[in-house]
Write a protein that binds this DNA or RNA. Structure first.
Lengths: 171, 171
DNA sequence: CCTGCATTGTTTAACTTTCAAGGAAGGGCT
DNA sequence: AGCCCTTCCTTGAAAGTTAAACAATGCAGG
């Protein structure tokens, strides 16, 4: 879109200035490229896209390797609908199984199976290496610190309201 | 996945340390949330997802509001296949039209129509506002600068080889 | 108890993306 | 010309995502 580098006139939207535009474009390109890169890496080595892998990771660090569907959805920032489909697929692969929640009959646990854990164990090193190579290894310690702070700010700003305990990892 | 905070032993992968883990998780959450946020905003206000909007934007700033398919794909970092489908959809909406390239009969131009331009004109202010509110307005000038530098580094690192003139915007 | 509303999770259909394959044109070579 | 290899773009099927609707349960208040 054309951008009028106007002085902030009344009624005019505040356009992105030159530096902001470059930052935003770089952000879009970097995040797209990184996501694609990791998707391919994991599709190749683990047989699933990046988001699915993230689901298994979340389960692997949860107590008893299980989480309620809604919990898991919150942790990974995806919709319950999407999660339902995804877990169905992972279930077919034998990496996750479901179990009814005894205390709340509406509830379902998603549980990481031994097979699922094994896939993680086998592929985690390669994945970590990919993340390092694409991201951390290219940044100075100061940049890493800054990136962390920035992403926490952005994530917190976009939390659905009333999400208090959603980001325990970030504090 | 369990992470053993080991000293770099031989054969062991170099796991992410605590700070890196937090940064990575925050990155994943922030980028997911932001993408979703903008997708919804644009789906609501412009009737298309964020990526499609980005295609129109790229066309709008190109000379004669047109780009070769491959160019457009490179600029937006998506595959040609994906682009073909996307442009087909935008064409149905009347926001883009195609035209054969006279000098290379294999080539196709994607061209922003007046209707397409009008959609942009109408929705750009709201979109910019959304980006500002979710990102720039929350960051200090130093953080904005840092974010830009970091994203350029990451994007450049993930360029497919031989992509020299792909990021003119970033220099 | 029972009514009304919220929460949990799934389902369906429409849409988008990916993957593998392929047609058509360019361009170098003999 | 003929051949080979590459680039440009599209296609169709499979996989993934989204939005809206739905059934079932929980829960608070009368």
């Amino acid at each position: 879109m054309d951008t009028a580098p106007t002085s902030p006139r009344d009624g005019e939207p505040r356009w992105l200035d030159d530096a902001e535009q470059r930052t935003w474009l770089a952000y879009l390109q970097a995040t797209t490229l990184l996501e694609d890169h990791l998707d391919r890496q994991l599709q190749r080595d683990a047989g699933m896209p990046h988001i699915y892998y993230g689901l298994l990771v979340q389960l692997s660090v949860a107590p008893r390797r299980r989480l309620r569907m809604t919990e898991l959805a919150k942790n990974t920032k995806i919709t319950r609908s999407r999660l339902s489909h995804a877990i169905a697929r992972l279930e077919k692969n034998g990496w996750v199984r479901r179990e009814d929640c005894p205390s709340d009959k509406r509830g379902q646990f998603a549980i990481l199976t031994d097979d699922g854990y094994e896939v993680l164990r086998r592929t985690a090193p390669g994945h970590v290496a990919a993340v390092r190579q694409a991201l951390f290894d290219r940044l100075t310690p100061e940049q890493q610190k800054s990136l962390g702070e920035i992403m926490v700010i952005v994530a917190e700003g976009l939390q659905p309201k009333g999400a208090g305990a959603d980001l325990p990892w970030l504090r």
